[in-house]
Design a binder for these strands. Structure first.
Lengths: 135, 135
DNA sequence: TTCGAAATGAGAATCAATATCATTTTTTAT
DNA sequence: ATAAAAAATGATATTGATTCTCATTTCGAA
């Protein structure tokens, strides 16, 4: 059966879709509030969890800001800038064979994997360069 | 200069080493307390952070229990059981070439990556099988 | 040994996320 | 439709991991 959509659930989903990036629950809540739609905090969290459980949205756990929600459902990796802590998607290099490899090695069922790369993003690299020249 | 070792820092480090698995800060705190060493909570957290920053211990972020600390410094992956939420190490398949691949693709500095596989561990798989037979 | 920097500990504060529970909305069966 | 049952909502309290504050203690170099 298809998931039931209340007004609030629909709106939460819309905001995540529009954002088209990585949004926090708080951001979703504030966006709705700024549009005059008073959806309670609990409802925002409940619905994000539900949408995630139903595989309608994706999420990653960010060490600083908690969960980040995303509509990109195609398997992909993430890049985490260690200077500004921003997250970017890394597409097109997903390795499904890795799951099989771990299954064979550990003799366990493996459904998927998540990978995050750590480095320095473009804008932070430029800032660094500018500072170096200033010295 | 080498990191300075106070009594408390030494003890925190020892407990993580002994555990030889994935321990929470709380576990470290309680272990020390049960041994009669009253190290404050803040001190435990401060030292775990410091040891991590100094690359003397490793850590991963677990969605349910927060950070898990570990002395295994050699690059490795993790396996997360979706039923019991236990973590296991996955060794010997670390792919350093992935970092280079992302560097070339995104034109960004990449230092390392972290990967977690999601599936069902051995003991949970057995429980499932037993339950299926009971039906 | 002494002075200054670093570390400690107790407890308060923070902050994302969840729980509680009365009220409202939606669904189902009649 | 309409009433009873189930699910969802929202306001608020609570949790739980982690960090902050700050007075006191310890450490380490001169």
């Amino acid at each position: 059966m298809p998931i039931k959509f209340t007004k609030q659930r629909q709106m939460v989903f819309e905001v995540v879709k529009e954002a088209n990036g990585h949004v926090t629950a708080e951001k979703v809540y504030n966006t709705l509030k700024s549009r005059g739609h008073h959806v309670g905090v609990a409802t925002v969290y409940r619905n994000l969890n539900l949408l995630y459980d139903e595989h309608l949205i994706n999420r990653i756990l960010h060490p600083d800001v908690g969960y980040l929600y995303d509509v990109n459902l195609s398997p992909h990796y993430h890049f985490h800038c260690e200077m500004c802590n921003q997250i970017e998607d890394v597409t097109d290099i997903y390795q499904p064979a890795m799951d099989k490899m771990v299954e064979d090695r550990l003799h366990r069922k493996v459904f998927r994997h998540m990978t995050t790369f750590y480095g320095v993003c473009e804008s932070c690299a430029q800032k660094e360069k500018a500072e170096d020249q200033a010295v």
